[in-house]
Simulated scan of single mutants.
Amino acid sequence: MSVREKYELELQSLNNKIVELGTFAQKALDKSLIALENQNVNESIAIMDEDIKANRLEEEINDQAILLIAKQQPVATDLRRVIAAIKIAADLERIADFAVNIAKSTIRIGNDPFVKSIESIRDMHEGTSKMIGLVIEAFIEEDVIKAKKIAELDDEIDALYGQTIQELLSISSQKPEKLAQITQLSFICRYLERAADHVTNISENIFYLVKGTRYDLNK
Rank of each mutant, 00 (worst) to 15 (best):
N111V: 00
I95M: 09
V100T: 12
I88W: 06
I45T: 11
G110L: 04
I95W: 05
I66E: 15
S117D: 13
P74T: 13
K116S: 14
S117W: 03
L92Y: 04
E58P: 08
A84Y: 05
P113Q: 01
A76Y: 08
D112M: 00
I118A: 00
D91V: 02
K71S: 10
I66V: 15
T77A: 14
V115E: 06
I107V: 14
F98G: 03
R94Q: 04
A85V: 01
E43K: 10
F98R: 10
Q72G: 02
V115M: 00
Q73F: 14
A84Q: 10
R80M: 01
I86T: 10
Q73P: 11
A89W: 06
D97T: 05
L92M: 12
I66N: 15
V75N: 13
I83Y: 10
A46L: 14
N62V: 04
L92R: 08
A65D: 02
I88Q: 05
N101G: 07
D49L: 09
I66S: 15
V41W: 05
N55L: 00
A85K: 07
N55T: 09
Q72K: 11
A96P: 02
A46Y: 12
V41F: 03
E58K: 13
S117V: 02
N42S: 14
I47W: 11
I109L: 06
Q39I: 01
K71D: 03
P74M: 09
D63Q: 11
I95Q: 07
V115N: 02
E43L: 11
K87P: 08
L79N: 06
N38I: 03
I52F: 09
I109Q: 09
L67F: 12
A65H: 04
I86A: 08
D49M: 07
A89S: 13
V115F: 00
L57Q: 06
I52Y: 12
S44Y: 05
T77Y: 09
P113D: 02
N42Y: 00
R94F: 02
K71E: 10
D112V: 00
L92K: 05
E119G: 03
E93L: 05
S44I: 06
E59K: 15
V100S: 09
D63G: 05
E119L: 09
E119V: 03
I47C: 11
E59I: 13
A65F: 03
I86M: 13
Q73R: 15
A89T: 03
A46H: 14
N111S: 13
V41C: 03
E50W: 00
I109F: 07
D63C: 08
I66P: 14
G110N: 12
R80P: 02
M48R: 15
D78M: 02
D97E: 03
